[in-house]
Design a binder for these strands. Structure first.
Lengths: 347, 347
DNA sequence: ATTATTTAGTAAATCGGTTTACTAAAGAAC
DNA sequence: GTTCTTTAGTAAACCGATTTACTAAATAAT
């Protein structure tokens, strides 16, 4: 008597078993599964019956060894507990499912070593394509090299100087809109809080921030620009240190919603009421943003739609490897809620 | 000149190429990669050099066709945008990574058809094991059948009457603790809000709810027990309908945190202040729970730890197919925060 | 010096599908 | 009635690794 483990292995019904059962050759059985018109209806019927009767499970691995396609893609993000990415993944999944694909998932924690590991692991598993939110310090070379090996789509963060498919929003425009809203309410000392140093998303948002300050000749200062981990506690600590300045800001544009949530908590901890004493704007409009109290003013990125778009783009790329790369920039609209209000003096 | 697509395929370096380059047989090259001691150090060196020089990428698929192991597992949850699952996935990923595994991800939206599709897709890709949050209406038979094909661990929801590995919390005890806390503050009419009808987690929580009502001989009513989608808007609508009762409750035990967030929003929409006019308790203690205003009283499930535990259990099961199944019940502790307060009359 | 054992490496079968080139039989064309 | 097509199906090579059984050379044992 063999053990349970090998039971499981030995039990697996192969296409040969199906063919034998149906009284045809393995080739015929394979052609049936692939809906090849060369097989007559009665034979087809017989094979399909055997498939059902024996409980045959298709072996995608064996097939893809030959066909060089796995109907599996790799999905690499930085942090799944960030709701922006959770919603992004959801959108990607929906679109993949429509097309019979499924994703291998990995998070990098924004560390390049993890990203390299994941890229290797996924390529070893012959994914047909990769959707990547590039970790901080990802090099142009790395992306060039990657996309020469496997179809690749970047999401949310871009790398200047590479021709590669990309889906994102207009970060600079979004930031400008957010800033105009704050200035409209009378704010003049406005901080920029959060984000990993070298991400394109942050740089673009920062550029929008700066350009509006210049446009209105408002005070600029290195001290008003803070780089933090992209977490609630990152925002929490940053705003508290800002409040200790001699001449603190009255409003903040945050790198994203998660950081903004942290900022609002930090304000309250410091005895200030967000939206009343201090205005806050986020970025992304994750589901939760509308639900906070005060509800968060933010730039809507529609992460779920972005995901669908990215998946669509990748599947298209897999089908058409030779087309020129496309950059899809989705609109970044301001959603004005109660975390932004008329400036008051609180000191 | 071939096109780019076939370039990508033709370019892939095989172990044979490596062997040729190193002047050894394919078998030797393979043995080197698997750290077999039969190969001498100089030869090993030569092979590894060729691997690096040619940029060889191991073909896990070809290997696993032979070895019957893929170092890949399937991970099926109901909804990734629920932070409980996002944190659970994070924990799973961490533990998998430690052991050189990676996960195929799929969400069911709690629909059995989706679950069946995903299970098939994952088995076709020969995952070594599956971590499953069973969708509503999953049958005992389905699980029995599944675990006879592939190592399986259930998380968060259990199915009565199947011997299968499981990681979860003590839902009934947690619910009892939550109820005691509410009663301690003087609440007598307490609702139970949310959750899919047939999930074991809900039934156990409900049992704890009922048993405490009985213990204190407090009013029980079908109308106080509501089943909703596990979403914010599910909780939002449910509490509003409860408030329209002639004799509405003054507190609610919610199926989980996400539903509780919806309930708090619904209260505010109805002009009531959660924690002040109406007490709310959640379940899970997702990161966000501490950050709400009012902060949410909840039963801590430590989703990330649960994930690690589940992954550990699955990997153990894969190694030891014949051991008896284990059920890991993690402690469910009450985290008392400001959403629970002394009962007031608000009508 | 001869035999036994160990060491280092290889040839070939194998995993489970796909796909190309081929064939036998039936039908159409003349 | 012969030849030409078409139809329906099959044999066998192939994808890229692993692994077993084998061999030649080197070393140890007697």
């Amino acid at each position: 008597m063999v053990n349970k483990a090998s039971d499981k292995l030995n039990m697996r019904i192969t296409l040969q078993d199906v063919a034998d059962d149906a009284g045809v050759s393995r080739s015929t059985a394979s052609l049936v599964l692939n809906n090849n018109s060369r097989i007559s209806d009665p034979t087809r019927e017989r094979v399909l019956n055997s498939v059902k009767r024996l409980g045959y499970i298709y072996n995608q691995k064996a097939a893809s060894l030959r066909t060089q396609r796995s109907n599996t893609i790799g999905l690499i993000i930085t942090d799944i507990t960030n709701p922006f990415y959770a919603e992004l993944i959801h959108g990607i999944e929906v679109e993949l499912k429509r097309n019979g694909y499924i994703a291998l998932l990995g998070s990098t924690a924004d560390l390049i070593e993890n990203q390299n590991d994941l890229l290797r692991i996924m390529q070893e598993r012959s994914v047909d394509g990769i959707i990547l939110v590039p970790a901080e310090n990802t090099t142009i070379d790395a992306i060039e090299h990657l996309k020469s090996d496997v179809s690749t789509v970047l999401v949310s963060r871009y790398l200047q100087g590479v021709q590669v498919d990309y889906v994102g929003i207009d970060n600079e425009l979004g930031a400008r809109r957010a800033m105009e809203a704050l200035i409209d309410k009378g704010h003049e000392r406005i901080a920029f809080i959060g984000g990993a140093h070298n991400s394109s998303a942050r740089q673009d948002r920062l550029m929008g921030y700066t350009s509006i300050l210049e446009k209105y000749t408002l005070p600029q200062s290195e001290q008003l620009i803070m780089s933090t981990p992209v977490t609630r506690s990152g925002g929490f600590k940053a705003v508290q240190s800002l409040l200790r300045m001699e001449n603190p800001p009255t409003a903040a544009l945050c790198y994203n919603d998660v950081v903004a949530f942290g900022v609002m908590l930090g304000l309250r901890q410091a005895g200030l009421e967000p939206g009343h004493d201090f205005s806050v704007v986020g970025f992304d409009d994750v589901e939760e943003a509308a639900l906070w109290s005060p509800s968060l003013t933010t730039i809507a990125a529609e992460p779920s739609k972005m995901g669908e778009e990215a998946a669509r783009l990748l599947l298209h790329r897999i089908q058409n490897p030779d087309e020129t790369e496309r950059q899809i920039i989705m609109p970044s609209t301001l959603v004005l809620r109660s975390s932004v209000n008329i400036r008051r003096t609180y000191i």
